[in-house]
Design a protein around this nucleic acid. Structure first.
Lengths: 159, 159
DNA sequence: CTATATGCAAAACGTTTGCATCCCT
DNA sequence: AGGGATGCAAACGTTTTGCATATAG
């Protein structure tokens, strides 16, 4: 999803709710969907740094408040990858994937597997439940060197 | 795992590390493995309440510090179920399971599924990784009434 | 115009830490 | 006796909130 589409989605959500579209909300949304950072899962701090590079007058609280709006209109999802930071994932409405976190370089690979999802449904059904959603994170190491060679530091074992 | 076994595990860990076994550490460990709360995943606050019922002189910080020891000797694991609270799970060394969280009554059902785990390994392998561990949480609702009828309140959608 | 949004600083929240004192070993 | 453990309160990092001001609709 590019940032124009994201801004449009936000605008129509705001209209529907009787809320206002401001330059700050535009800037923050564009920073969040910046193609230069595609496939990243920024923390609030990281996003704030991007935002400040575009407009240094925007406050931290506004980033928090706007991120909450983005979550409400399904443009963002909060994630806990076990490094004691809430990270936000840019969403493409209708798509779903899970995550593999490299314990060596901290990179995050997204994947999808229908067989696993079918089994999840079956397990839940056998327990008498119907799944609404799920979270699956695989913590792993790459076989030889990292697939996504990281400039990032290795991370402690999760949780 | 009963609380005596847990205390023994802690004692030998402490000896190995040259640390001391105290009445507080015993009390907290026994409260954590209290059979009356089997299958629960207490937050620090909830565990602290159990501890206070046994010995009102024990401080909050000691519960945190002891919980860290229990994690170090694999008697406890921190978990994030999406309700903005770190919860701790009593562990049986060598066992593994995943969790299903009921969105209606907030109860947590544990399950294990080897087929899913095999698929997880395969997915990771195809991406060039080798799994060290994983986390999977299913968020679901029971078909008709809750399997574990809860005295607990419903919870907001996770994350 | 009016309701909502902003920026700032203060408050809130869960967790950790410094320190004087206590107590296992 | 001495190093580790405790309880308290203060510090901490993250997130939320109150309020005066600014601004979209």
């Amino acid at each position: 999803m590019n940032s124009d589409d994201a801004v449009n989605t936000l605008v129509s959500y705001l209209e529907r709710k009787g809320l206002k579209f401001t330059s700050q909300r535009r800037t923050i949304t564009e920073a969040f969907f910046d193609p230069r950072f595609r496939d990243e899962h920024p923390s609030v701090e990281e996003l704030y740094a991007r935002v400040r590079a575009r407009d240094a007058r925007i406050g931290y609280a506004t980033v928090y408040r706007t991120l909450k709006l983005l979550v409400d209109c399904h443009l963002a999802s909060p994630r806990q990858f076990g490094d004691n930071q809430t990270r936000y994932e840019p969403e493409i409405p209708g798509e779903h994937h899970d995550h593999l976190v490299c314990l060596d370089c901290n990179s995050i690979v997204e994947f999808e597997n229908d067989e696993i999802e079918a089994l999840q449904d079956r397990v839940a059904q056998e327990l008498g439940f119907k799944i609404e959603q799920h979270r699956m994170i695989l913590y792993a190491r790459c076989r030889r060197g990292c697939v996504v060679p990281g400039d990032r530091a290795p991370r402690p074992a999760p949780q």
